[in-house]
Amino acid sequence: MAHVQVSNNVTVGILALQGAFAEHQTALQKLSFQEKIAVVLVRTAEDLSVCDALIIPGGESTTIALLAKLAGLLEPLRTFLQKKPVWGTCAGAILLAQAVENTKKGGQELLGGISVTVVRNGWGSQVESFEAPLSTDGLRDPTTPFMGVFIRAPVVLALHPSTENPPIEIIARLPISLVPKSQKLMVHDEGDCGPHDSQSIVALRQGRHMLTTFHPELTKDIRFHEYFVRTCVLPTLV
């Protein structure tokens, strides 16, 4: 594991307002790098200020956004996003998106940071929640499929590449045959890239930021956590 020769410790924060932050903490603690990874549960702007990177966990995006607002964290989080790596899973991915459909009535607070449009609960209610093996690009041991756990998951509707922003890299896709057919998404099927093309994207990276619409923290597989630290976090510390 000699990718990066830095000896200082890395501090990864996990936004711990609501949701599955403990699971991310367990996964990060299992990682072994040359550098020690210190984990901080972020609840205030002071907690955030010591972090080199941040994970926004799964939960309810409306609840997390409201609690962040009440804690005075929205602006510190937006400033953090300009400079440092952030990874959002599920609800976290919604908060990181540039635009969101199917928000609660009257819209909801977003942080932005990744130029994509997502739709909340894109595949339907909990009855439609599923697990499926994913084909990945860039993870260790790429021949072993990653088991994606999709719980009322958001769906990527469109990518908005532009010259001002870093390019979007796709890390994981649902095999086309496994993309659920959702009534809700039928209207969006007439894109240039063919039906279901963006909908099969379930993990992507833009510069230092990453989003996954599923929950790597609910599995014992820590390859996504390893990927985030290795490719998004460590290079920013040099």
Partner: peptide, 10 residues
């Protein structure tokens, strides 16, 4: 059980 995990702290 994953959905219940997402509700934690709420």
């Amino acid at each position: 059980s994953g959905l219940a995990q997402m509700l934690k702290g709420g």
